[in-house]
């Protein structure tokens, strides 16, 4: 099954010949990538290939040194005035959830809307409850993150990001820290999110998810985009030898 939505050809992310170094170490090499509104992209590749670094460049958690990144028509440069405004349009979900442990689930979800978006508290709480219902944990709203299971925490993290009503969602291995029985509940949440037409970039090794949801799959190795294709061609006839090797490793175990 392939989820189909009305995708416009409006480009929301445009990366052009982008390079990044950590000190002398060339992590990202000549990355070019365009993402249209509503498009869903899955990135995979071996550990250390620069997947996390790439998507962290998109909301400028990491700073690139060469090339262009344009998000929502704003170019990410050093003298950017309202970085916060751009970041609040790009949601991000982390491998380790990163919920705020001293705040309740509801407070986790309303903190940024109230202080960054200046939403009235009541409105923020209504929105948060709506999104917590969407990720199927409204009854946990008054608990603290430490009292929830990993899968529940990750769904709260997704709801927290969505509370900022972002235009783009980035996922960095959202299920890698979870026990097998919890992976499905998080993936289901992400599939439902995809059905709403959200623009998504997902770093994951869940190839079932990629086949089901992705419009395009990217394989990265040693800081380069080695191959990009639609899921069907990507899995059935990968062109590059390294892609073939990688796929055989993760699909056969």
């Amino acid at each position: 099954m392939v989820i189909n939505n009305n995708k416009s050809s409006k480009t929301v992310i445009q990366i052009k010949e982008m390079h990044k170094w950590f000190g002398n170490f060339h992590v990202l090499k000549n990355i070019s990538l365009g993402v249209n509104q509503g498009e869903r992209i899955v990135i995979c590749g071996p550990s250390g290939s620069g997947k996390s670094t790439l998507i962290r460049c998109i909301n400028r958690l990491e700073v690139h040194q060469q090339g262009d990144i344009i998000v929502n028509n704003v170019e990410l440069t050093g003298d950017l005035k309202n970085l916060e405004a751009i970041r609040s349009d790009v949601g991000m979900v982390f491998q380790s959830f990163n919920l705020f442990p001293h705040l309740t689930v509801l407070e986790n979800c309303t903190l940024a809307p109230i202080w960054v978006k200046k939403l009235p508290k009541k409105e923020a709480e209504e929105l948060a409850m709506e999104l917590l219902t969407r990720v199927k944990i409204p009854e946990q709203a008054l608990k603290y993150p430490g009292q929830l299971s990993g899968g529940q925490q990750q769904r709260v993290a997704i709801a927290r990001s969505l509370c900022m009503q972002p235009k783009i969602m980035l996922f960095d291995e959202p299920t890698s820290a979870l026990d097998p029985e919890m992976i499905k509940e998080v993936l289901d949440t992400m599939i439902e999110l995809a059905e709403t037409g959200m623009t998504m970039i997902v770093v994951t090794h869940e190839m079932g998810f990629a086949k089901k949801v992705a419009d395009s799959v990217i394989f990265m190795d040693e800081g380069e985009i080695i191959e990009q294709n639609d899921p069907k061609n990507f899995f059935n006839n990968p062109k590059n030898d390294r892609t073939k090797l990688f796929l055989s490793q993760i699909l056969n175990h």
């Binding site: 916060e84 940024a112 960054v116 990001s161």
Partner: peptide, 27 residues
């Protein structure tokens, strides 16, 4: 405080004082 806390706050668009007041100091 784990680095991830700041990254999450950054990703939500919080500025320095908001991070300090709501994330750093309470913890």
């Amino acid at each position: 405080i784990p680095k991830g806390q700041y990254e999450a706050a950054d990703a939500l668009g919080m500025n320095y004082w908001q991070k300090t007041r709501f994330i750093t100091l309470p913890q």
